[in-house]
Simulated scan of single mutants.
Amino acid sequence: MLTRQRKQHLLELLKRDGQIVAKLLSEQLGLSEDTIRRDLRELAREGLLQRVHGGALPASPAMAPFAARQGISSDAKPAIGRAAAAMILPGQVVFIDGGTTAVQLVRQLPADLRATVVTHSPSIALELVEHAHVEVIMLGGRLFKHSIVGVGAAAIEAIGRVRADLYFMGVSGLHPEAGITTGDFEEAAVKRALSNAAATTVVLASPEKLNTASPYLIAPLAQVSSIVVNADVDDALLAPYRALGITVTLA
């Protein structure tokens, strides 16, 4: 089997099975593990999969810059935002992450809602400028232009001074084994700090993020209380998350 054919076969298996185990595949194909691992490394460099210990998982398309992500799952995100917005109770202090789905969340907040939103996202803060009854607290830090959010030591220090009721987290990847992941080391640290400072963490998961992984771990799924997903997601895809005791809200 030529290298190109072998790589195409690997991608087809990944799409079919949702993962690749290098040892098992080398036995099935009669190839060395080194050959399989080399192919996986090269495919990972092309952004076609995410390498993990022992094999590979599907790469998340949510690794694209903010502007490009606005066109991904554009039909699903408003519904997810609407369902998430309904979770916020009057008087609560809420962390809201950056990202295109989070923008949809704040656009769905009731006009009469009185609450406090704490965010490291200028995009989220701007969306709330005309919301008369929502107090907005912005966290500082270095602007991570890819996601348009603040990151770094200043952001994490500020987060440590807040105790929130809810945290609506945006992620690049969500996988039953790989946990919740994103594409930047510092951004992962900020998301982890936000989750640790909130009583409840809710993940906003548009369909393309389920069962995918990105390079940097935010936290294991045990950190997550609830996932908000689009209503037409296959129930079999959601079963592993429910089995972990996570509440799945269909939008």
Rank of each mutant, 00 (worst) to 15 (best):
S123G: 08
A189M: 08
Q5E: 15
P61A: 04
G150C: 15
N211A: 11
R192C: 10
P61K: 05
I156A: 03
D184P: 07
M87P: 04
P122M: 06
A85N: 02
S26H: 09
E186R: 07
G152Q: 01
V190S: 06
P61R: 05
P122K: 01
A67E: 15
A59P: 01
K7G: 14
E42F: 00
V203F: 04
L24F: 05
D112M: 06
Q108I: 13
A239Q: 15
L11F: 04
Q104E: 15
L24C: 10
I227R: 10
A62D: 15
V190Q: 06
V136L: 11
A85I: 10
A199H: 07
A243S: 12
S206V: 03
D17W: 01
Q108G: 11
T182Y: 01
V136T: 13
S195F: 00
V21A: 09
Q19V: 09
A111I: 06
R45T: 03
L43D: 15
V129N: 08
R4E: 15
Q223K: 10
D75I: 05
V106I: 15
L48M: 08
K145I: 08
A219D: 12
G30Q: 08
V21I: 11
A219P: 02
L210N: 08
V149C: 04
V118G: 04
S74Y: 07
A222G: 13
T100V: 02
K7F: 10
D235Q: 12
S123Q: 14
G47E: 09
F66K: 04
K23Q: 14
L139S: 04
I156M: 12
V118Q: 09
Y241N: 10
T200L: 03
D234G: 01
